[in-house]
Design a protein around this nucleic acid. Structure first.
Lengths: 136, 136
DNA sequence: GTGTTTGCAAAGAATTTGCAACGAA
DNA sequence: TTCGTTGCAAATTCTTTGCAAACAC
């Protein structure tokens, strides 16, 4: 936990307990939570936390490049603190987001540009029905 | 335009002038417009059209599978009536969405499932700075 | 004529903002 | 002490809904 504080300091951010808790939560979940999910979880330890703080923190982390915003769930923004190269599977039914580390060809021989447009990143989502939803 | 009406009738929808105009607009733009963009454009011919009608129509077309909702623009939903297999480039700066028909390996040897999850579709976005934004 | 669709206005959901009080450094 | 951050409440933005009137068929 001390490392986290240092990391924040380096970037010029204050290591408030709320922030540390949000980051800690993000690092320990695979759910790719929405702001509301983060809020609900942090509220257990910090009953007075507000949405503003959650949104502020998520926005701050997004700008500093420490989390990524996923654009797959049409209803709400979802976040991922796992920056290692990976893709996602999105279940239409339960809205679950599953990490896919199996890297197919695509990202390996990625060109720098496509039709003159500079590629900075790639977003790849597999969409369908997840394993557990198939059973129900 | 007659074909459009027939197509709608086949699906059990009424071919209202508003609908025809919305579909016509979608078929003649490459901008992958948001609901608001559609609304503004249709309003020129139908000054009394409401957002409700635009959203209703887009929702109807989405459910019937005649348009696709793009999940790349974090701010708002965007729509594409081009159902041919293609990908998109999203410009971070001007928010433009550009069609990419150049098919890389990925979608060709697509498995039916990945880690037990049934894949129904794939969403692939190239994200970066478009050609015209590079110049400014 | 019948049932769908429109258009208005109001409601709802997600996110953002203003600002005073607080607290990390 | 200082300036970034919090928390509240209000505001904003995008989207949806209820319902009466209008209209496609």
């Amino acid at each position: 936990m001390k490392k986290l504080a240092e990391m924040l300091h380096k970037k010029g951010f204050k290591a408030t307990p709320q922030r540390l808790e949000i980051i800690n939560y993000l690092m320990n979940t695979k759910s790719h939570p929405s702001a509301e999910e983060v809020y609900k979880n942090i509220k257990e330890k910090f009953p007075t936390i507000s949405f503003a703080t959650v949104y502020n923190t998520l926005e701050t982390l997004k700008k500093s490049g420490d989390i990524k915003e996923l654009s797959i769930d049409h209803e709400r923004k979802r976040f991922d603190i796992d920056l290692s190269p990976h893709d996602h599977f999105f279940c239409k039914k339960c809205k679950k987001v599953i990490d896919i580390y199996e890297h197919k060809s695509l990202k390996k021989d990625l060109p720098d540009t496509i039709e003159g447009n500079i590629i900075e990143e790639i977003s790849l989502f597999y969409i369908g029905i997840c394993e557990s939803c198939q059973k129900t």
